[in-house]
Design a protein around this nucleic acid. Structure first.
Length: 123
RNA sequence: CAAGGCAGCCGGAUAGCUGCGCUUUGGCACAGACUAAAGUGAGGAAAGUCCGGGCUUCAGGGGGACAAGACACCAGAUAACGUCUGGCUGGGGAAACUCAAGGGAAAGUGCCACAGAAAAUAAACCGCCAAAAUUUAUUUUGGUAAGGAUGAAAAGGUAAGGUAAGAGCUUACCGCAAAAUUGGUAACAAUUUUGGCAUGGCAAACCCUGUUUGAAGCAAGACCAAGUUAGGAGGGCGCAAGUGCUUUAGCAUACUGCGUUAUACGGGAUGUUCUCCUUCCGCUCCAGAGGUAGGUCGCGAUGAGCUGAUUAGUGAUAAUCUGCCAAGAUGAAUAGCUAUCAUCCUGUUUACAGGACACAGAACCCGGCUUAUAGGCUGCCUUAUGAA
């Protein structure tokens, strides 16, 4: 599974209108991928975007939140994510301070929840 | 020793696993959102965006006026500055040292609460002194500004002389003003002489004087450029007219003209006309203008650059020489996790446990300013009150 970075604002908005799962250290949103210029959707790929708002803190805090989310995604997504899906991860206050194992656990739970919601929607 | 002052520096380290951006050189399907190796990858403030520049576009080629803003002791440094250095003056400190937005109040206007007689046309409440009157302890008139009282601030201060009482009325010292001389580039300082006290404070109130400022910013700006598209060519299709054939209404059609995203054509349903629903096909090539999506440049190896040395200077800094090239992202890399050590705190079993480990993340680039900052290190200087 190859993971690419989501860049367009349009895609973020579409993911926000899809399904979502709220955990204590992060929020996961997801929607099926659409093709666009410079964005090739094919088998065995998915797109991931990261969001850290100004509510979380100053710039170095937001950077740290994004980096930890990126590291968590590298651990979990390559084996467990669905293909052809746009994911958006939103940082929360606890993301910067929580133990890393907790973040990974939350991410796995969120993925499973989102997966079941997506299959329900398709049926 | 302790306390203090000034200047400067550091801003955790090591290892392992897993990863990221950029550059260079390779690999190949010659291209990428592929892959391998090597190199390289946040700060003292990267922050606030408060000044000054470079650079870019617009405006104006010049000069002046007005408006608005900024600045304001002197000399120097600098590309420039509201920055920096060295002085001066005035505050603070025992000292080392430090702080200051520090032109003009005699151009004009304005303000100075409360209190107080009076807050500025030099003034008079209580006083003090003299004279007159009578009700003999009061009133009136005049002189005066030493004393009292108010206030943030009260019309030079202290002493002596002087006087009816007093007063720069006179003298000495201090302060103030003016002039001269000397020293200094200057701000200014010192000395002497003269005056005889004259200009109460606020300019961070308006204002005056002098100097100075065109505007907007890298989302600046430059270039390339899908899609859409004016137009053109070709094909297909439709219509028209013409022609041909049968025959007067159809069929076919080289060439020609027009149309070709239209209230059209085809299909379906209902149904008397007519109405409703559905939306499959409609191509290819060339190409002007514009410049959207997107991309490239601007953008980091040439810069008011960094390092070291020498020389000049009190210093800011400058000159010369040597060596070096050192982040360049754009939903935004520079890391995530683990272990050990270092530092600090707490507890106790005194070598263990637990916890903490600042402020803070480049975004076109420089010079400053301001603000935030755990903890630590180095050098020089001061000694009133302290300890020895």
């Amino acid at each position: 599974m190859k993971i690419f970075i989501l860049k367009k604002r349009k895609d973020f908005i579409r993911a926000a209108q899809g399904v979502k799962s709220v955990q204590s250290s992060l929020i996961l949103q997801a929607a099926p991928s659409l093709s666009a210029p410079k964005k090739i959707v094919c088998d065995d790929t998915c797109y991931v975007g990261y969001t850290a708002t100004k509510k979380l803190g100053k710039a170095h805090v937001r950077n740290r939140v994004k980096r930890r989310l990126r590291a968590a995604v590298a651990c979990v997504f390559s084996s467990q994510a669905c293909e052809k899906i746009d994911y958006v991860l939103i940082g929360r206050f606890k993301t910067a301070s929580a133990p890393f194992a907790k973040i990974i656990e939350d991410l796995q739970n969120a993925l499973n929840e989102v997966k079941s919601q997506l299959t329900e929607k398709n049926e």
